[in-house]
Simulated assay, not measured.
Amino acid sequence: MAESQSQSQDKASGGKLYVVGIGPGSVEQLTLKARDVILNADYVLGNSTYLDQMESLLGTQEVIRSFMGKEVERARKAVELAKNANVVMVSGGDTNVYGMAGIVLEVAEHESLDVDIEILPGVTAVLAGASILGAPVVTDFAVISLSDLLTPWEVIEKRLNMAADADFVIGLYNPKSRKRKSNFARAIEIIRKYKADSVPVGLVKNAMRGEEEDQIVTTLGEVMEYEDWVDMSTAILIGNGESRIWKSPKKDIIITPRGYHKKYDY
């Protein structure tokens, strides 16, 4: 495929590193620019899971596969290659929201490397899940990962308390894994101290991944009935005090009013 003008210039000036958010995991959800830079890259690096999702775009590029836990090594390799080539580092969801943008920039800063780096956004799970559930996130919200691999649980617990006390809509990432089975239950216990049991909760598994996608709409008081259903591929959205469930003819939909009803008649 012919190179874009900007990428031809990148090669002439010594290469460039793109950190690309691939969104939920389907090619259809990529931005046009993300698709373009992947197609025209010399090297594409990433977690094998995410590279598999982009397989239809990979052919002429040299693909370097990596795995969870190898993020620092992956970032170093990408920065090094970008000195002389066009390189794409793929990141699931968005590059900033628990993505690869931070570690790539940290590595470049630490090694004082003069490499041109561009960060391309992608649809993150909380927004993909929200679109499936209806409109749970139309006002102030907080997103909290329940993984204590890099963040101490004491810090996570503090954030849960403060976000729930402020009545933010709350998105929960990484709720459960084989090694972390209790964090989801602990988080719900904290949030229930501040929010009513009637508050809507949406659970979305494999958001926007075709036939793998599934969803449940329930309430804070009943969400633990679905604890066994929740896993690492599940995004959780917990409404605020004004959120409600609309039992539409098609499906249950979560609506969080933004406040238009207070100013306008409709």
Rank of each mutant, 00 (worst) to 15 (best):
N183Q: 09
T151I: 13
R178W: 08
T218E: 07
A12Q: 14
L203A: 02
E213F: 00
I188D: 10
H110L: 11
Y194C: 05
T95Q: 08
V155A: 14
V44N: 07
I238F: 09
M224V: 04
S243K: 14
G134T: 13
S48I: 12
L220Y: 09
S198I: 13
F67T: 11
G171S: 08
M208V: 15
P257W: 13
M162Q: 14
L57Q: 02
G23H: 01
G202K: 09
K70G: 04
A101M: 14
N47K: 12
S56M: 07
L113Q: 15
N240G: 08
L160S: 06
V97F: 10
G21C: 06
A75G: 05
V27W: 06
K33A: 04
A187W: 10
D148E: 08
E3A: 08
D252S: 15
K205H: 02
R244L: 15
V87N: 14
Y43L: 03
V20Y: 13
L105F: 09
P24S: 10
G171T: 01
D167M: 07
E106N: 11
L51K: 01
G221I: 01
L81E: 06
G102R: 05
G23N: 03
F67D: 10
D140N: 15
A78I: 07
V115H: 05
G202Y: 10
Q7A: 07
V87P: 04
P200G: 02
F141A: 09
L220N: 13
Q53L: 06
V44K: 05
A75N: 01
I170T: 15
L105N: 08
V115W: 05
V217L: 07
N47L: 12
S243Q: 10
Y18M: 04
G102D: 11
R35L: 13
E109D: 14
Y98E: 02
S147D: 04
V223K: 05
V115M: 09
T234D: 01
L17R: 13
M68S: 02
V87E: 11
V230D: 01
I117L: 00
